[in-house]
Design a protein around this nucleic acid. Sequence first.
DNA 1: CTGGTCCGTTTTGTGCACAATCCGCGGCGT
DNA 2: ACGCCGCGGATTGTGCACAAAACGGACCAG
Lengths: 243, 243
Amino acid sequence: MMKTVLSASRRAVRGRGEGAEARIVRSIGEAIADRRLPPGTKLAEESLAEVFGVSRERVRKVLLLLAQRRVVTLIPNRGAFVAKPTAREAREVFEARQVIERAVVEALERIRRPLPDEMSAKLRAHLAREEEADRAGDRMALIRLSGQFHLLLADFAGNATLAGILADLIDRSSLAIAAFERRSSHSCSATEHRRFVEALESGPPGEALRLMMEHLDGVERQLDLDARPDGAVDLKSVFADRT
Amino acid sequence: MMKTVLSASRRAVRGRGEGAEARIVRSIGEAIADRRLPPGTKLAEESLAEVFGVSRERVRKVLLLLAQRRVVTLIPNRGAFVAKPTAREAREVFEARQVIERAVVEALERIRRPLPDEMSAKLRAHLAREEEADRAGDRMALIRLSGQFHLLLADFAGNATLAGILADLIDRSSLAIAAFERRSSHSCSATEHRRFVEALESGPPGEALRLMMEHLDGVERQLDLDARPDGAVDLKSVFADRT
DNA sequence: CTGGTCCGTTTTGTGCACAATCCGCGGCGT
DNA sequence: ACGCCGCGGATTGTGCACAAAACGGACCAG
């Protein structure tokens, strides 16, 4: 038996209910984080309403929520688009992440070793999943898992408010990466995550923090944040050495 | 001449326009921060629509935005209420503020002294306003100015994203203070702010940071975060030593 | 006096229809 | 060939009407 049957005739079942909006928000949010919806993509209300089997105003509400989280941009009388961060905003987001994740890791380092079994177990289980996705070459899963890893750490730190803020920043990081990623590079984060966990469990004090800061720096440095915003490219330099 | 004339007959002028929603959000947000709307207050859609001279769905949208910022709580089929943070949430908010404001002050301390004229001037102007509100005993103005002070510092730090996050946290601080303030105490923050600015301008390195952390600790310590949430009070202990 | 049920009123939730706005395209003039 | 203007189609924005649900009071039974 299939898990869920997607069909227009089922809209009464799929579309309704308390958490319908939350489901759609998650769904779109994940699609954006996974880059199935690249920055700049138009999100037409009618289409989304059809896809999710809900009325147009429900979609409208969802888009308003996503806009508040800066994941989509709402342009009056033009519609909703997947947000396309500026280079400046991208830098700010990564800086904000460093600020918050530093605090998270500092809190985690204050926990007496050995780490609680549950925490350790969850971390190792997560690493296993990341490495499997890595082996399988499942890029989308890897991106999602990478975000979840940082969020998992924030949860362990015990401050749900900070974790919530970080969740937003992680989504926006995905957006920034999608917008500014260099064609080349991409050192897998799975191994860096593993090293971090090892440092956290049995490394010298401060080692985990150092690794995390380097990790975030590394991710940011893989971006091409000097690129001009689209449409402002210098045509002269682009065609300089062409004949 | 008065700045703005509030009148129902002006609804066509006041209610319309691009920034109508932003205006209402600010208006309600300030009212909550100023504690003219204490935690738990019901925010009926129809009433608000009438007050601001807009349609009910516009109010609805505004309430959705405020709910996203955790300033109001939306209970399905019950309506919107001014959020009433739990003690845990209050602690989390203050901890989050420390995390972010530490980063802000560290960034400010990295600026070479003397501080740029504009920055210095704005800070001093702000201090003057705070002290005047203090002398005048204008409690509401003092609360608002106190929040603006911290936000001003974040602006100077140059990260708009972090500043935006902090703005939310400051609003929620006001809520927490309103919910957990002790009847007694309240050391004026104006003098602490002045000392901070002096330390920032000409104090030894780290002094400003120390003052800011103490300041935030002080604010939090003025709260009674051990109070049980309303309705869950332990009647036995309340009437323990009564006859 | 306590506790429970029913019903009217008030408030919130949702779909729909219509108004407003914008985009693309074709025509026209320079 | 380039740019300006205006129109048709499509998309978004908004008010309205009705459906759904909750609160409060009245009434009643124990």
